[in-house]
């Protein structure tokens, strides 16, 4: 472990340097409505407008239509999780929907689904209330055995 520990110390220094270069990537302060738990969803499609803008900008259609749709599927399920976090039964339903969306994402982006997911979720959980609601929804479903689809059926999870 001695070699690892010394390398680890250097790693921490490098990481701190990395963080210094990774400043906030958020835009100007949102309005009260935009920063509410629900945020704004002008077209009422279940995906917050700022999240929708991000998805369409980062993964424009038609070139990225499959990824775009998979991320919208996840964003809609996650938004439902946030809004229904106080309801145990709905939380379980929405976690199941999130699992199907993530299986779809893994089918569409098998080599980089993780960083794609991390960035989208970071965009969605941009306030403490939204983050807390997301975690509360998780806690509502944590003891439930939610079935997983096998890899050969992940494409079928795409809506």
């Amino acid at each position: 472990m001695l070699i690892g520990r010394r390398e680890g110390t250097v790693g921490v220094i490098l990481l701190l340097a990395l963080f210094a270069g990774c400043g906030s990537e958020t835009s100007s302060p949102p309005t009260a409505v935009a920063s509410s738990l629900a945020g704004t969803d002008a077209n009422n499609d279940g995906v917050r407008d700022d999240v929708e803008t991000y998805i369409d900008t980062a993964y424009p259609v038609p070139a990225n239509v499959d990824t775009n749709k998979a991320l919208r599927q996840y964003a809609k399920a996650a938004q439902s999780s946030i809004l229904d976090a106080d309801d145990a039964a709905k939380s379980i339903t929405h976690v199941t929907e999130r699992f199907r969306a993530l299986e779809c994402l893994m089918a569409r982006r098998p080599t980089d689904f993780h960083p794609v997911f991390v960035e989208l979720r970071a965009r969605m959980l941009d306030t403490n209330p939204r983050s807390e609601a997301y975690l509360k929804a998780d806690s509502q479903a944590a003891a439930v055995n939610i079935p997983l689809l096998p890899a050969d059926q992940w494409v079928g999870a795409c809506i």
Partner: peptide, 28 residues
């Protein structure tokens, strides 16, 4: 699943307080 939402909440709160990072960057 090993339920960890409580730990994540503690962790993200501590991270924000100690490191001054916004929620999105904490998740990143």
């Amino acid at each position: 699943y090993n339920p960890t939402s409580g730990a994540v909440k503690d962790f993200t709160e501590a991270g924000q307080q100690r490191l001054g990072i916004n929620p999105s960057d904490m998740w990143r």
